[in-house]
Every structure is written in C-alpha cells, then in structure tokens.
Simulated assay, not measured.
Amino acid sequence: MTYAHRAAAFRALHRTGEPLLLPNAWDHASAAALAQGGFPAIGTTSLGVAAAAGKADATGDTREETLRLAQGLARLPALITVDIEGGFSERPTEVAELAADLVGAGVVGVNIEDGRPDGTLADTAPQCELIRAIKESAPDLFVNARTDTYWLRAGGADETERRAAAYRQAGADGLFVPGLQDDKAIAALVEGLPDVPLNILFAPGALTYARLAELGVRRVSSGSLLFRAALHGAVEAARSITRGGAVPQDLPSYADAQALSAAYGDKDQPPTRR
C-alpha cells in the first residue's frame, strides 16, 4: 500500500462507523502489542515517550526520541500518528522538516498543541504558521490541531471555537480538545465545524465512549492512560510477590513478547534470552 493510500485510509477512519478509538503507545513493544490486538491506528503519548527517556513532558526536548520511535513504529501493521508536542520548535521551517521526516518514515498523522511549558497558550497567529508549514511540507499528513483551552483553563468555549476556526483555516485536518467533557460545548464544536473531526481525550469517570459517539465526536484518544496503567500494573505485580498475592494469569508469555519483537523489531539483532 502506498503512502497516499495509507494516509487516505487513516482519514477514512474518522468518517466511518463509531469514533476512532486511538490507543496511545510509548515504545515499540506497547505499540506492537496494540497492533496485534487489532487496533487499526495507533498514536503516541508524549508523556510516555518523554518518561521512557527520563525526560519531562511538554518541554520540547524529545524530538530525536519521537522521530526514532516513529521510524520503528512505521513497520507495524497499523496506521501511525505521532504526538509532536508543540512541534519541538517555534520555527516553521524546522517543524516542516520534522513533518517531512515523519512522512518519510511512513507516519500518517501528527498531533500539535498550542499549550506551552509555562502554562500559557501560544498566540494563534504563530500557531497557524506552524500548521501551514506542516501542510505545505506534507500535504497528505493528517494534522490534528490540539488546543489546550480547557486543559489549561484558559478561555473556555468562545476561545476554543475561535482557535478551532483559525486552525481549520490554516489547514488543520482535525481538532483535539483535551480536558473538554461538557456535553453542550462538545455538541457546539461538532455543529460549528462539521468538516473537521473532533477528537476528545477519554477521561475515566467522565463521558463514556458511547456518549461521545452520540455527541458526534469522531476520535477518542487514550492519551497517557495506558502508560500510567502499565506503571501501576508493574508496581502492583512486584508487590504481589512479597505479599503472596495473585499475579494476573492472562499476561503475555515470554514467547508472546519475543514474538512481537521478531515480527516487528530489528531483524538484524539476534534474539537474546534474558
């Protein structure tokens, strides 16, 4: 399948049937497991990628790690979209170069956010310049423009709608509003931008997947949830050893994990049993 066909297939996932449930991986093994689990598209979580590298999230310091991971994930039998935080640069030319490198790796989508490390929102005009630069460099790349108006509690519904319209005008293919869980506000965004798929971050205990579907949401992301669940599971499994508790019995076996690497990992590396 050509890149153009893969990019078109990813776009189609936002327009057919139920909302696209996008699980977010943080390394090759987690992404390979999700692909084996039957998910047609997989995203990355910037928190997980940064934490795996021993770095802080949302500081613009994981460009190389993100690109390296993306190059490996492109071998998976799934469509890959990558979280590039704020673009890892404020220079449109450098963000455009990153987009071109990701397309070269086979990535079909990116998520770019307007929240900044100091807790403020980027000005709309320069953020639109970054979006335009990406689209000019990689026209087929699905640009999911994330606005942190609700995440940072900076602006609410009016500011969200204003930014959504501006990002769409700049060429964004989708809109992502993490932190938004209000029925009326979600419905208003869906109605106001009918040609732009709305992406909502799943929040345990808040709106369900089914309710988001009813409201017209076209994409539901897990964000860092799976990564945090994996951390919790690892600690609890370790504690169960000393407590004499039961370790989950349906865990992947050594052979299962090895098979993921054999199928989608580096073919030049011989298997090593540890």
Rank of each mutant, 00 (worst) to 15 (best):
F227M: 11
S253K: 05
T147Y: 00
I134S: 02
E90G: 15
D182I: 05
P92Y: 04
D183T: 15
E64W: 11
R68M: 08
D266T: 04
A74P: 09
V110S: 05
V110P: 04
R243C: 10
H14N: 13
F10H: 04
A157H: 13
A257Q: 14
A96R: 03
A164E: 06
Y209L: 14
S222N: 06
W151A: 13
R168Q: 12
V196K: 04
T62P: 00
A53L: 11
F227V: 08
H14R: 03
A50H: 07
S89V: 10
G205W: 01
F202N: 06
H28V: 00
G155Y: 06
Q249G: 15
E159F: 11
P126K: 05
S224D: 08
A51E: 09
F202G: 00
W26E: 03
R11L: 02
H232I: 13
H232C: 10
D83N: 03
A29G: 12
A230P: 06
P23A: 09
R15I: 06
L225K: 04
A238P: 06
T149S: 10
L226D: 09
T62K: 01
Y209K: 14
L130N: 03
S261P: 04
L175E: 02
A33V: 13
P197A: 05
R116C: 04
A9H: 15
G192K: 14
R219D: 08
